[in-house]
Write a protein that binds this DNA or RNA. Structure first.
Lengths: 130, 130
DNA sequence: ATGCCACTTCAAGTCAACTTGAAGTCAAGA
DNA sequence: TCTTGACTTCAAGTTGACTTGAAGTGGCAT
């Protein structure tokens, strides 16, 4: 596959793919002339990268997750990250409910309609700074 | 409350609070000398901002959600955002399962252990570019 | 074989969201 | 009163993740 094919399938611009390659996140399997050639498996890689980005990993961290074979040192780290994702998921769920409530609410200020405030108060007292 | 008190309670540095005020996201209720004085309600505001950021809103968008009283034009937008959050939540859930799987997996490459790949394949075929 | 145009490299630019630094102010405790 | 140090402003710097532009190359359809 050439770069624009991958770009199209993955939904990212070619410039991003070149950038990712430069960073070592993906590899091109060769060249046809100057043109990069990618294996289809790069699409799975890209999906994984997208997943990681959504989960809040930096590109450098993702690169490390791909290459690093450290045995179990970061099992704790992974578990911690999973915890963190749980917290984020809870936040997003709150936000989602809040938005749907706000959409059905005639309060002038979108983010401060009573429904939202109630949700917020319910989720606040768990005293985790940040 | 003075700025450092708010900062401490909200878990953000004072510089951020000044920045948010400049952007119109929060207001100080007055000054004692030069020093800003905040109402305790600013904490709720900050929690809301944090929630919005987590949900992927930009600071400008959040500011708009606070001030804008446009009647129903953006109900659709809010609903769309809720959908989007749903998708993100699904992604995070996949990632969370994947991380936990990877943590319990002896595969060398963390992000490409078989469990992860299976999860990925399960979530991929839903052909939504990006 | 020729011309087009998608590809290439590399340096520099952009953007959001803050942070940092310098220089100054002032509330409050000793 | 005097000092201390937490506050203030404002401009400039930082970071991550890309994007853009200029200048060049070469695969492929005609």
């Amino acid at each position: 596959m050439d770069i624009s094919e991958v770009a199209k399938q993955a939904g990212v611009p070619p410039s991003t793919l070149r950038y990712y390659e430069e960073k070592g996140l993906i590899v091109s399997i060769g060249r046809r002339g100057l043109h990069r050639v990618f294996a289809p498996s790069v699409l799975e890689r890209l999906a994984l990268i997208s997943l990681g980005r959504t989960a809040g990993f930096s590109l450098d961290e993702i690169a490390r997750l791909f290459t690093e074979s450290k045995p179990r040192i970061d099992r704790k780290m992974l578990a911690a990250k999973a915890e963190e994702l749980d917290a984020t998921i809870r936040k997003l769920t709150t936000m989602r409910k809040g938005l749907l409530g706000a959409a059905a609410c005639s309060f002038p200020n979108q983010l401060e309609c009573p429904k939202f405030r109630r949700l917020l108060r319910a989720s606040l007292p768990s005293r985790k700074p940040l």
